[in-house]
Measured scan of single mutants.
Amino acid sequence: MDETGKELVLALYDYQEKSPREVTMKKGDILTLLNSTNKDWWKVEVKITVNGKTYERQGAVPAAYVKKL
Rank of each mutant, 00 (worst) to 15 (best):
W42D: 00
L33T: 00
V9I: 07
K67S: 09
L12V: 06
I30V: 11
L69F: 09
K53S: 10
G28Q: 01
Y65N: 04
R21K: 12
E17K: 13
T4D: 12
T32H: 08
K6H: 12
K67W: 08
T24D: 01
D2Y: 12
M25W: 02
G28P: 02
N35R: 07
Q16M: 12
Y13C: 15
K68I: 13
W42Q: 00
R57P: 00
Y13A: 10
N38T: 06
D2R: 13
Q58S: 11
L12F: 02
L69I: 13
T4S: 12
K47F: 09
K53H: 11
N35L: 07
P62V: 04
Y15P: 02
W42S: 00
Q16G: 06
K27P: 02
E7A: 11
S36H: 07
Y13Q: 12
N38V: 04
M25Y: 02
L34N: 01
V44P: 00
T37V: 09
L10K: 07
K68V: 11
L31D: 00
L12S: 02
A63C: 08
L8A: 06
Q58V: 14
A60Y: 15
T54H: 08
V66F: 05
L34G: 01
E45N: 07
E56T: 15
V61D: 02
R21V: 10
W42L: 05
L33D: 00
T4G: 13
A11R: 02
K6L: 12
I30Q: 03
K43N: 10
V61P: 03
E45Y: 07
K68Q: 07
K26G: 03
E22G: 13
Y13E: 09
V9R: 01
K47W: 08
E7V: 15
E17Q: 13
S36T: 09
R21G: 15
M25P: 01
W41D: 00
V66R: 00
D2N: 14
V46C: 10
K27H: 05
I48Y: 13
S36F: 06
E45M: 14
M1D: 12
Y15G: 02
V50P: 00
Y13L: 09
A60D: 15
T24G: 08
E3Y: 14
A63L: 01
S36M: 10
V61C: 06
W42A: 03
E3S: 13
K26D: 02
V61I: 08
I48G: 05
N38H: 11
K68S: 06
V46S: 06
N38A: 08
T24A: 05
T4R: 13
D14L: 05
Q58D: 04
Y55G: 04
S36I: 07
D2L: 14
V23K: 01
Y13W: 10
V9W: 05
E56F: 15
L12Y: 03
L34A: 02
E7Y: 11
V66Q: 01
L31R: 02
K67C: 15
T49C: 15
M1I: 12
K39A: 13
A64W: 09
K26L: 07
S19F: 05
V46P: 00
D29N: 05
G52Y: 04
L10N: 02
K67G: 05
Y65M: 12
I30P: 00
N38L: 07
I48D: 04
V9P: 00
V61Y: 02
Q16D: 13
K67I: 14
S36P: 05
P62S: 03
L69W: 07
S19C: 10
Y55P: 00
V23C: 06
D2G: 14
L10P: 00
G52N: 07
Y15D: 02
A60I: 15
W41A: 00
E17F: 09
N35V: 06
R21F: 14
I48E: 08
